[in-house]
Design a protein around this nucleic acid. Sequence first.
DNA 1: TATAGTTGTCTAGATCAATAGACATTTTAG
DNA 2: CTAAAATGTCTATTGATCTAGACAACTATA
Lengths: 245, 245
Amino acid sequence: MAVRKTVERQTGVALWRQIADRIRLAISNGDYDATGMVPPETALAQEFGVNRHTVRSALAALADEGLVRAVQGRGTMIERKERVTYPISRRTRFSQGLGRQVKEIGSRLLGHDQVPAHGEIAAALGLSPGTPLVELNTVNSGDGRPLSVATSYFPADRFPKMAEEYGRLGSVTKAFAAQGLNDYVRASTEIVARHADAEELALLQLSPGAIVLEARSVNADLDGRPIEYARTRFAADRMKLRIET
Amino acid sequence: MAVRKTVERQTGVALWRQIADRIRLAISNGDYDATGMVPPETALAQEFGVNRHTVRSALAALADEGLVRAVQGRGTMIERKERVTYPISRRTRFSQGLGRQVKEIGSRLLGHDQVPAHGEIAAALGLSPGTPLVELNTVNSGDGRPLSVATSYFPADRFPKMAEEYGRLGSVTKAFAAQGLNDYVRASTEIVARHADAEELALLQLSPGAIVLEARSVNADLDGRPIEYARTRFAADRMKLRIET
DNA sequence: TATAGTTGTCTAGATCAATAGACATTTTAG
DNA sequence: CTAAAATGTCTATTGATCTAGACAACTATA
């Protein structure tokens, strides 16, 4: 008999959402690969110890995300399952790592600005506070699904045309190259996980309560001089990060 | 005037929990460092556009976590704020990386078992399915706060005394050494973020809805032979991961 | 010692989340 | 064609969540 899976009550997170999260995880773990379908609503209701209507709310949310599709009389089919793997190494390049996993990579420049360096960013880039930086806000998607939003900072004196070149070329690596920098390496990466804020929910097309993986990274040229500080937020249920040491 | 921060309604995540998450994040970002206190309930209520009672529920949850402490007439003080940094490199060792950040590191063996290798684990360890493995379940804490739970697998023929040695020494590195392996390296690490399940909530003393960072890692000896597959779940609001490439 | 500012407590009502049961509709298997 | 199995829809009820307002209790300061 099926193992009873626990969900917690009175925690500020509705049962239907907890169940939706568990089913999403089970799908991405391949638990239902044998049939390509989610178990029947009645079976799930028993498994989680809740009413069938509660399970239906969870499945409705997953259907909204386009993850499953219910067909009356037949069952609920899985439409999509895998997480994209994003490799992080000394030579991390956004497009390269995803190349084989998604057919089409989209990069959209949301906006850019010139801001003075301060706090953590100034420290990470080894600049004195106040040094002008180019700020770039971008969204990256794979096969039409948004995967990450990024806010990047570049020293404005060294890369004055960053925004323009990125807008033209759609890639940080290419924008660097267009400004005379042909190679660079990842100096450091820090990763935290947290709930997405309202802006991230909108840009990544996530349902509220969703999780983002935030990577704060510094890239440096081959002389070790920092050239970019980036804060990249990945949609946690669409991505996993692979660390290559 | 304060910027209105948005919270989403009818999403399966109660407003008080969304607000608690936002305040927790603000605390860990140092937004309230100037005063060491959370803004007054009335100010927060206006900021989030909700009733004061809703903010009170959020603060009560944070007080339960021991993150803040309310004093009548005075305000709500911040008790604790920082995240511990966990370094991941080619020579990742649990205790070493945390050494300077926490005074006392605790390791507790929850249980152990002998299981046959299968699926992802067999593949990662380069073993044929069915090969016997030692499974170890552990909780690791820093200064009394649980930081991570881990499930590790070791080839049983090579490390037959893993459970025993870990129980005695409280460290995987030392247990390896006791069985004749003096050095090893991190071969691969994959990171995902998701909501904690009921067991993780209990072991990590988290409030429901909390996030875990799950790292699936493989360690290998210096000849490149895999010796350990581990699934480590970190309490996301207490840890950040630092990738050293 | 007032007084302003803050948290604590209580009551009441509106809306959302979850349970329960009944039955309709559709697909698949026999 | 029939029956079983699955999703779809409806009604009703209970408990959680959120709003609203009023006032008590405590702290710091002028």
